[in-house]
Design a protein around this nucleic acid. Sequence first.
DNA 1: CGAGATTTTGAAATGAATCAAGCTGGGTGG
DNA 2: CCACCCAGCTTGATTCATTTCAAAATCTCG
Lengths: 178, 178
Amino acid sequence: MNGDAQITGFYFQGDVIDLNISNHAKQNYGAVALETATVCKIPLAEFDEMAEQYPALSNAFLKLMSREIILKQRMMLVMSKMTAEQKVANFLVHLSTENKLRGYSPVIFNLSMTRTDVANYLGLAMETVSRIFKVFQNKGMISVERRQVSIEDFEKLESLLQDDDTKASINASTISQK
Amino acid sequence: MNGDAQITGFYFQGDVIDLNISNHAKQNYGAVALETATVCKIPLAEFDEMAEQYPALSNAFLKLMSREIILKQRMMLVMSKMTAEQKVANFLVHLSTENKLRGYSPVIFNLSMTRTDVANYLGLAMETVSRIFKVFQNKGMISVERRQVSIEDFEKLESLLQDDDTKASINASTISQK
DNA sequence: CGAGATTTTGAAATGAATCAAGCTGGGTGG
DNA sequence: CCACCCAGCTTGATTCATTTCAAAATCTCG
């Protein structure tokens, strides 16, 4: 997995991981499977063709991308406005929620990624993540054993997030005159 | 404009500011016009109808959203991996580039927003933004007079961004087994 | 001319990064 | 089966960037 690139997301079964439809993208992307994975790739031309025939398809993609934008937006908020503890709490809460959604246990699960990766994803130092796991453990909110996490007090974790007004967002639009 | 919500973007003439197509969105959004603005709003039902008739339309939206995702992704990187100076430099470089793209001067332009808003957007304290503007000015990279900015040394500004490997990104995919 | 908003500036406080060891567990080869 | 190794993780001490607090300066405009 190497160096110091930015991890932009963790994805699960059924997720669409790369929505780069346009040719805007000159960026280097890469996906790394942490567990057994199956991937389906659709060439752009082929997609266009299919979309023409089945409007529902592009509709579905619009929804997917909309969701992705909201996620990224939320992540921007996480990155810029949250303390390290809040970032980690948010991370755990989301993992738990996501797991529940998928029919797995929301209480006990596997991180299937290193501290370093989590840290990178959250824009923190590995050491900080390690320390915060410990703090949460000492407070009886979670218990961590290597990559095995169990949520002991979901509400308390969640409550860490909502102290300020970490909910609303604003799009400030700057439109040149006339 | 008020309080402490997160500013998720600044938009220009012709930009699509709200791509919330799905009903995932329970979030509070708001747009504030800093200069004279005209807005076009399309109800979801109507959009679906139009999209059915003109596949090119949803295609165009897919491209738009793809671009938006890439932007947000880049912004995540900015938020999590850059120092305050880099954030501000990046902000200025982008404004300048954006202006050029739109046929305005890339060298001298108006911030049409308060320091507080810039700070909020970049996840910094207002004072920090102020100070960094001063630093850049002292280094002869820009000159600021209230909201009037002129770029004196674009290259130097840009060079601040590329020291580390602030370019590549990785999508780490975690796909549940089988 | 005020009066409120915005910006600048300085000093002190602080959260997180960095640096530097030491620990741990799981895998490898002898 | 043991001893070693090594990547991943923890822990402590120190440093540093940025925030916060506080106050003065400057602008805007009714």
